[in-house]
Structure formats: C-alpha cells, structure tokens
Design a protein around this nucleic acid. Structure first.
Length: 591
RNA sequence: GUGCCUGUAGCUCAAUUGGAUAGAGCAUCUGACUACGGAUCAGAAGGCUGGGGGUUCGAGUCCCUCCAGGCACACCA
C-alpha cells in the first residue's frame, strides 16, 4: 500500500466532498420542502434558458457551470437569485450583465408563482414570486407533525456519534456538559437528515488512570477503617471517592483488609466504576441525553482487539521499535512526530486502545464516524486519522468535531475551576441551578468553534434576557390559543377545509415563508454539523410568531380566516417543537 | 518556537461556506392594544469585520504577514 507523502490529515473534509464520495449525489438531493422544490424548478428553467440561448445562437456553446440559486439577503433582490450569468463571462466572452439579459429572454420554462425576473448588480438574475408561494409549507407541517423537516440527505447510511466519553472516575464537568449537548443535538440533526444514528459513550475503564483510581480507593478504604494510608500524589482526592468507599464498606464490610492487594483493588474498582458509570448515566439522562451503546475500553483489551490492531499496523509496515518501545509511524501521514503505542514496560498506551476502538467502529459497518472532542484533545486528531489510513480505512470517514472550552461566568466574574482540587461545577449542579432547558440551549446556541462564555446568572434568569424562554413562550402561547378555542367550543379545522389564500398579511406570509425553510435548515445544519443553526432558526421563528401575534388575532368571528390562522400557528407549533426536540429542550404547553 | 481555534455594534454571538447595502439577542433611548398569556411587539441609535498586503466581476469568508487571547505539543488520557 502506498500513501502520498504530503497527505494532510489535520483538517476534516467538508461535508460536501465527503457526502459526494459516499453518496454520489448532490447535497440537496432528497430535500423535500417547498423551498427546495421552487429552487429545483428555477434551476431547471435556467438550464433550459442556457440551452435555448445557445441553440438560438445568442450564446456561444458553453458548459453549464456549477451555479447557485440562493435566497438573497436583501428583500429587494427578490425571492431567489442566481449567480449563473457571472460564472459564464470567460466561456462566453461576454459581459455578465449581457449574458444575464440573454438568459432572461430565454426563460421559457413555466415556473409556478413567478411574477417578475430582473437583472441586477454585477449580473445577478433575481426572481420575484407571488408572496403566497411558500404557504404550501403550512399544511405540510401540520400533516407531517414530528416528521416535518425530515430530509433524506443521509440516505439511510449508518453514522456513529461518540461524545462525552468522560473518565468514569469522576463526575461530569462543564466541558462534558457542552459535549453532551452538542453531541446529542448533532446526532438528532443527523437523524432528521436521514442518517441511521448510533449514539455512543466510550468508557475509559482501563489503563493508568484506573490503576491510580484503584490506589486512591484503597487508600480511602484503609483510612475509613482506621489504617494509615495516603492517597497517591496524582490520585483522586475528591470527596465523592470517599463517599463511594464508605458505601462499599456499608455494603461489604471490612473483609478486603486481609485480601490480596490485587484482589482488593479489583473489588474496589469494580464497585466504584459501576457506581460512577451509573451516576454519569443518570446525570446524562436527566440532561436529556440517551445513549445506544456504552462501550468499554477494557473489553477491547480482553477481546484481543488491541493486539489485533497492532498486528494489522505491523503487517502494513507502520510499526517499529525504538528505545525499547513500539512506535506508530504517524509521520508517514503528515503528522509532526511518531507516537508510542506500546511502552517500554509492555503496556499499550491509550492511543493503542483508541486505534483498536476506531478500527472496531469501522468493523461494525459505520459509513461515517463522528467524535466530539474538547479542544484540549485536538492534537490527537491527525494521528488518529493517520492510524485509520494505516489500517486501510478512509481517514475522511472519521470526522472529529472540536469544541472550544467553556468559561464559566457568575456575577460578571470568571469562575475558576480546578479539577485537581475537585472544585468544579458538575453537570448535576448545573442542571439543578439553571435547569436542563436553559443549560442545553446555552450550549448549542453558539458554534462549537466559539470559546463559550457560560453566564450562569443569565441562564438562570427567568426574564426576557434569557433566549430560551422566548422560544418556549412562543410555543406555550400557541398552545394557549388552542385551549382558548376549545373553551369556546370551537373545533380545530381539518387541513383540507382551510382556505390558506386568506393569509395575505405581511406577518402571516413572513412566518409561513420561514416555516418553509425548516427542511433546508436541517439539511444545512447536518452538512455543517452545526446545532447552533437550529437554535438561531427556531429563535427567529419564535420572533415571527410573536410579531404576528401582536398584530393579528387568531380566533375571531370570521371563521374562515380564523381557521387559516389556526393552521398557520399550528404549523408554527410543529416547527418550534421539532426544533426544540432536536436541541433537547422541552416545548411546554404553559409556563 | 510549531500546530489548531478565536478576534465582527458597549456586551454575547451570527452571516446561506466567495455574493449585492455585514445581521440577531442583551444593554441604551422612544413608543404600543385594560390582552387568543406583556417572559410580547413597533421603532431609533450603535461597524474601517484586530492591522497591513494580495488573489477576482465580488473577500468577514481564500492566500501571505504582523498583533492579541485560548488550547495542544508525554512511554498521561
């Protein structure tokens, strides 16, 4: 096997290239919203315009460039705009605006709702539609309910999202909490985007730290039973360890005092790990995060998978011995330096186990493997990808989302945290203090790249300063309208009986238009692995709902109009709920 | 020193991955219906996108170079 020497592995590929490689289809295929339908129609019309212009001799023969049909930022630029004409000047040897004029002349393909086409700016072609064009999204959302927004870009392929994977020797901290919120929402988005998703937690229940853990437990065990002992220098000093050992003694007594050291430690570790993992699982469940698989590192050692991974690397010529240790030739993959996989003392490193773990992931048939790691592990990415390449897997099938660290603010001041002294805010405490909804929303409303400032006071405040309530309030408000309807003895209209054309107000149309974007927002969020897009989108939808609500009444004596508006707010409720579900935030019926 | 992330309104952050006049929230100021829930809405003000070069029809986005902050550079994980 031969590899390019300059192969660069430090960065992830864009989803575009990756998707094309495994799916072979265009990124937007399978998107089923009304926006995408309209976009498709316009693309078709443009393709035909080029053909028409060429065969009419108005344009020289050209190869159709990879043009975009985008929603312009400026409202005056129409509902859609294309850059097609600006990509052709070199081929056509004509000025972009002239090309645009010619294309507009040859736009013969009939497009529903199309009212006006204009050439603007450096050569954009702008399409202006009847403002009611997006209303079709309303019945779609109402009918599909929880399935509205689902798209098929994943094509049912298998993706694994591994996140948190904290050491089972302690409690979860703020960094883990961000990873949990991010990872779970990424998984939810991919699920919506048509992937078959597995959420997985990797338990580091082997290696040095477990040794250390055992010694710490043993020391506490001795102390609690009146013997002299000291927790080792780099050991676990937290009070939670003491409590764990106390519970062990309550349950099992002091019988281990006389046992063999190895057996004693093993018993203590097994007890403590079970308890710790249980606590971690509980904390995550309370945070709304559920895993499909809890994967034990120790099982890799026990099952010979680490040896197997090393054997495969050796066979392929990527292992060598130096200074009594075994090294992986990471430099063959553009990494700065080689990496030890088996220490001088014969014990494999964490890296060796991690290689075996990722090998196992691909053996399990995942088409795409995503890891969510803290920025403090980013240096691990290139060599991990290198190892996958060395094993013969496509390194681009492994995608590591690096999230920046969390800084905690309280009272406008940075809260210093130290793991060493055991003084840090745990996930449980966070949920208790600010609530699950606010916590999760705050973690996903910023991109993973941002160095997050988590303002505890803001997250806790139940006021208009807190964005999570803004969104939830919109949902509760809609629910309130339907309660009101019921109290008046009126019926929720059947979708088929509603005349949506009655929705003509700007606030109504703007809301419906944005609801129509949802499937595409999911698609984009999936492509970018970016939950914050959904957070911003849902906030905007909530804002449009509030604006509408403040100007127009839903329930009036005009039954026809009321029904149309009821359908509109119901569709809004569907979108709000689906988005909040993706973010792991409750959609309350009252607040 | 090297690599990665970041630098955008007073503050916290976006920006359809190269598109047209850079947008939200909070804070500030001015207003709104005795309400299907005011945890709401309408409006105003706020910018040399850290600095400087370059690439092109077009740059917050790509390249080069400085400056500042975070993280990482173990036979730890």
């Amino acid at each position: 096997m031969h590899f390019k020497t300059k192969l660069k592995l430090s960065t992830n590929p864009t989803f575009n290239t990756w998707h094309q490689r495994i799916g072979g289809k265009s990124i937007m295929s399978g998107v089923s919203g009304v926006v995408e339908q309209m976009r498709g129609e316009l693309r078709q019309a443009l393709r035909e315009a080029v053909e028409g212009a060429v065969s009419a001799g108005r344009l020289p023969p050209v190869e159709l460039p990879d043009f975009t049909v985008e929603v312009p930022r400026e409202r005056e630029h129409g509902d859609f705009a294309t850059n097609l004409a600006m990509l052709l000047p070199k081929q056509a040897r004509m000025a972009p605006r002239r090309i645009a004029d010619v294309l507009v002349e040859h736009l013969t393909h009939p497009v529903r709702w199309l009212q006006r086409v204009e050439v603007a700016g450096p050569g954009f072609i702008n399409f202006h539609l009847d403002p009611r064009w997006a209303l079709a999204a309303v019945p779609m959302a109402v009918k599909l309910r929880a399935d509205y927004g689902r798209v098929q870009v994943g094509g049912g392929k298998k993706v694994q999202v591994e996140f948190v994977s904290a050491n089972p020797t302690g409690l979860l901290h703020m960094g883990n909490a961000r990873g949990a919120a991010l990872g779970d929402s990424i998984a939810a988005i991919l699920d919506y985007a048509g992937w078959k998703v597995t959420r997985e937690f990797y338990i580091n229940d082997a290696g040095n730290q477990i040794e250390n853990f055992a010694l710490s437990l043993e020391a506490r065990y001795f102390q609690l039973l009146g013997r002299e002992a000291e927790v080792p220098e780099g050991g676990y000093h937290g009070q939670d360890i003491v409590d764990t050992v106390r519970r062990f003694i309550d349950r099992h007594g002091d019988g281990l005092l006389a046992a063999e050291p190895a057996a004693r430690r093993e018993a203590l570790v097994q007890f403590a790990l079970a308890e710790k993992i249980g606590a971690i699982r509980k904390a995550l469940e309370d945070f709304g995060v559920h895993y499909d698989v809890w994967f034990s590192e120790q099982s890799l050692h026990d099952g010979g998978k680490v040896d197997e991974a090393l054997r495969r690397l050796r066979e392929r010529g990527f292992l060598y011995e130096r200074d009594g240790a075994l090294w992986f030739k990471a430099t063959a993959f553009g990494v700065e330096k080689d990496e030890v996989v088996v220490r001088k003392n014969g014990v494999p490193t964490y890296f060796a186990a991690d290689i075996a773990y990722h090998m196992n992931k691909f053996e399990r048939g995942f088409d795409w493997v995503i890891n969510v790691w803290g920025a403090d592990h980013h240096g691990h990415v290139p060599r991990m990808k290198g190892a996958m390449a060395a094993l013969g897997y496509d390194p681009d099938a492994l995608h590591v989302v690096i999230m920046q660290l969390v800084r905690l603010l309280r009272g406008g001041e940075v809260v210093r945290m130290s793991k060493r002294t055991g003084r840090f805010i745990t996930l449980e405490e966070l949920v208790e203090e600010v609530g699950r909804d606010a916590a999760r929303y705050f973690f996903v409303m910023r991109s993973a790249d941002s160095h997050l400032d988590f303002d505890l006071d803001l997250a806790r405040s139940q006021s208009n300063e807190n964005p999570v309530y803004y969104v939830q309030y919109a949902h509760a408000r809609i629910c309130s309208i339907f309660r009101q309807l019921k109290e008046q003895g009126r019926q929720v209209p059947a979708v088929e009986e509603v005349n949506l054309e009655l929705l003509r107000e700007e606030a109504e149309l703007a809301l419906a238009r944005r609801l129509a974007d949802f499937p595409e927002e999911v698609s984009l969020a999936a492509r970018q692995l970016a939950p914050h897009r959904i957070a911003r989108y849902v906030h905007e939808v909530a804002g449009l709902l509030h604006s509408f609500y403040n100007v127009h009444r839903v329930i009036t004596d005009d039954v026809e109009l009321s029904n149309a508006r009821l359908l509109l707010v119901d569709a809004t409720r569907v979108v709000l709920r689906n988005c909040l579900g993706i973010l792991g935030v409750h959609a309350p019926e009252r607040m």
